[in-house]
Computed example of a mutant assay.
Amino acid sequence: MGKSKLALHNPPGPIKEPGMMKIPYVDHFPGRITSMCKLDVVVNAIREKLTRQQLKLFKDDIFGHFLQCRSYPFSGVIVHNILLRQVSHGDGNDKDELWFQVGDHLIRLSIGEWCLVTGLCYGEKVFLTKHKTNHRLLNKYFGGRIRDINLGQFEEIFMNLRIKTMNDTDALKIAMFYFADRVLHGRKDHCQINFNLLNEVDDINHFRSIPWGRLSWETIYKSIDNVLNGKAKKFKKASAENPLHRIEKYNFYGFTSAVHVSEEVFFIT
């Protein structure tokens, strides 16, 4: 994930007033975010489990550049304070950009900046197809446990797989699936793995052609746009009922590690 200052965007015309923020300053509240993205865990697992040749194949493929991100701490405090500053933009129908008021500036995070930071393909909106592979990877390496593996369990299964003895191409496919489903989708441990995606990766050239930048953007856009809905009112009510309630806790879904990189690049620099 690289750095750029292209997204510091000062549009012509007057700066939006704080009252036009989705959550007015007067209703801002302290929050504690739990990120569902497991970038560090997945990168370390892939590095540990794959052979040198398998790891080279992964490095040379569409997610290979993320192996450089061995450790990237997620600062929930910084991200929370950025999320509080989201402003409405236009008629609300543009799903390709988000706007935030930081000081005297309106700052944009769009799909263009997102793909620039993540290094993932922009592409057009696509729908994943159900390839008729009869769950080959699932049957061969995971005992055919259809609809019976959640994300938390898959991490343990992945670490116990004899990946170093399997076909290099299958090892690459499983590692790419693991990264896409656990990092780019960023969901809770108890959620089932995406079995359709495990079929998608078996057609590896098709999998590579998927615009992962757009798909991950659509997930993070929805997460950012909805994650604080009702939280200010909930915090105010809880604080009134219990003086010891001083912070609102919530989960943040999607590729949240890239959101953290984005705010460092676009909001702070």
Rank of each mutant, 00 (worst) to 15 (best):
F179M: 08
K49T: 08
F154E: 06
H105K: 14
K49R: 15
H131N: 14
G152R: 10
Q53W: 05
V261M: 13
L198P: 02
Y25A: 12
V41G: 01
G143P: 04
N199E: 15
S262R: 00
K38L: 14
G123I: 05
Q53R: 13
E264P: 00
L228E: 10
N167H: 11
E218P: 01
N194A: 09
N139Y: 09
D203Y: 12
F177D: 07
C37W: 01
V87T: 15
I111D: 04
T256R: 09
K3V: 12
D94K: 12
L244I: 00
V87F: 06
I268C: 08
I62T: 02
I146F: 14
F154L: 14
K231H: 10
R108Q: 13
L116H: 14
K3H: 14
D181H: 12
F252E: 02
T133F: 14
P211Q: 06
F58I: 03
E17K: 11
A240P: 01
L244Q: 05
H131K: 11
V201S: 05
S262T: 04
K125N: 09
D60R: 08
Y72F: 09
F266S: 10
K125T: 09
L138G: 04
R108L: 07
S88V: 11
Q53P: 02
L106M: 13
F207K: 12
R214D: 03
L55V: 06
T133H: 15
I163G: 13
L39N: 03
N196W: 05
P30G: 05
H80A: 08
T169S: 10
F266N: 13
H89D: 13
P11L: 08
R108N: 12
I193R: 01
Q153M: 15
F177Y: 08
D148F: 04
F158Y: 15
H245L: 00
M20C: 01
T165A: 15
K236T: 01
F63D: 00
L98N: 12
E218D: 15
V77W: 04
I220Q: 07
Y72V: 05
M166S: 06
L106D: 15
F74C: 01
I82W: 15
G31D: 09
G31E: 12
V126K: 11
V201L: 04
C191V: 13
W99H: 15
H9F: 13
S209N: 14
E156W: 07
G152C: 06
R214G: 01
V79N: 10
L228W: 13
H89V: 07
P243K: 08
K16Q: 11
I224Q: 08
I204G: 00
G123S: 03
E200F: 00
T269M: 11
H28C: 06
Q68G: 00
I163V: 15
F66E: 01
R32N: 02
C115Q: 03
K3P: 02
G152T: 05
I204Q: 00
N205R: 09
L84V: 01
G76H: 02
L228P: 12
S257C: 07
L55Y: 13
K233T: 06
G112W: 05
Y122P: 00
Q192K: 13
N226V: 04
S75M: 08
G123T: 03
F142N: 03
H9V: 13
G152K: 14
A175F: 11
